[in-house]
Amino acid sequence: MTLSPGPPPWPIPPSWTVTTPSAATGPPPPAEPVTPPSGPPHRTVALLAPDDAGVRDVLGAVPGVRVDARSIPAPAPGFAGVRDLADAAARALSEGADGVVIVAGTEAPDETAWALDLLHPGDAPLVLAANPDHTTDVADAISVAAAAPYRAGCLLVTRGEIHAARHVRRIGTDALVLASPGAGPMGHVTAGVVRLAWRPPERLTLRGGTDGTAGGTAGGTAGGTNGGTHGGPGGGSPRVGLHTVTLGDDGELLGALAERCDGLIVTATATGGVPPEAAGALAGASARIPVVLVSPIAHSSLPVTRLDPLKARVLMHLLLAAGRDRDAVIAAFAAAERPGPAQL
């Protein structure tokens, strides 16, 4: 997917400024603080946070924004917690919020942001504060939610940086060190001023949004086969394996993993290939379950994706949980690789 830097086609609010394309490679120049507008607040941002999040100090920190603080339970582990957050955001938007900020510590903020992006079919922005313990991150997230253009999807704010859910990932061992390799931050927040370095990427969303009932049937009875035995409606949470092909990989561990999975994401070698010893295991697995190769180049017998491995796994999990069979999952990944927005 090609990202086009430069002025976006939407109307830009006064507090949302756009840098020139050359500025996208580095931090923006210092910005003056936003002058608080006169009159009543003109945008409403729903702030979803557990009772113990300690966000009271930021409720009036962003001029011109009405913050509707809503208490939510601490997220459950795994995808169940992500769906709870998506449902809470959908309720807030249906009740009149212009944008939503989620302040909840998650075990994987980059994966959570991507899952929320896929599950959120609407136009209003969702913003995840990566570090809910830092009031600056929360205030910055409110500024972004109030100023972000529609169709921006889910954005993640951390340490003054704005990251698109499609690109952000955790780097190193610190869960709160986040970056967008190959793309860079989508923008920055300085003293309440939101500065955009490049336009949001075209969005991928799941048909059916948060209801998890979109398309296909579990067990592969509609247009394809799926030999997995764990996932899909009525069958519990799907198991999606993640395997990285490494030096000396003989395919034995890969084959054993595939036997326990409903779907499989495999990261290719640095050259985009798969050793012959592992190719046989992949061929056998792909006849039974959806197998997608993370690779920058096409493969002769397997579908490929340029999503990073963790995001590819999240997408496959949500597709299988919605009841998609093997062929439907492969078709969705193919659609995700084509330019432009897509509803999968």
Rank of each mutant, 00 (worst) to 15 (best):
G96H: 04
L119R: 07
R199W: 02
M1S: 07
L119N: 05
L257P: 00
P181A: 05
C154W: 01
A336S: 13
P125F: 09
V266K: 04
G231D: 02
H230D: 01
E202T: 12
L196I: 14
A256I: 03
D249E: 08
T221W: 10
L307G: 03
S143C: 14
A165M: 05
V65C: 09
I102D: 05
L254F: 08
T217V: 13
T112H: 05
G236Y: 13
R207N: 00
G99S: 08
A139Q: 09
S143G: 12
A76S: 12
A328E: 15
H188D: 11
D84Q: 15
G224D: 12
E259I: 03
S38E: 11
S22F: 04
I289E: 00
G105T: 13
A104N: 08
A74L: 15
S286M: 09
P201M: 06
G234L: 10
I142P: 00
V82W: 15
P50I: 10
A97L: 09
A222P: 00
S94A: 14
A130D: 07
E161Y: 02
A23Q: 14
E259W: 06
P109A: 02
R83K: 01
G227E: 09
L155E: 10
A268F: 03
D250V: 04
L119H: 08
G241P: 10
G39T: 00
G223L: 13
S143M: 04
V82S: 07
P41T: 03
P27Q: 08
L253T: 05
G236N: 04
G251C: 06
V274M: 00
I289T: 01
A49I: 02
A222L: 11
G216D: 13
D98F: 06
T106P: 07
P30H: 06
V62W: 02
I162D: 11
A342K: 00
A129C: 11
R66F: 12
G208S: 06
V34L: 06
E252V: 15
A334S: 10
L319F: 10
A175M: 10
R195A: 14
T135P: 15
A104V: 07
Q343E: 12
N226P: 00
V291W: 03
P29L: 14
V62P: 07
V45R: 01
T35F: 02
T269A: 05
N226A: 05
A165S: 14
P201H: 06
D123T: 15
P41F: 02
G272L: 09
V144N: 14
R306M: 04
L204P: 01
D117C: 12
V189E: 03
I162E: 12
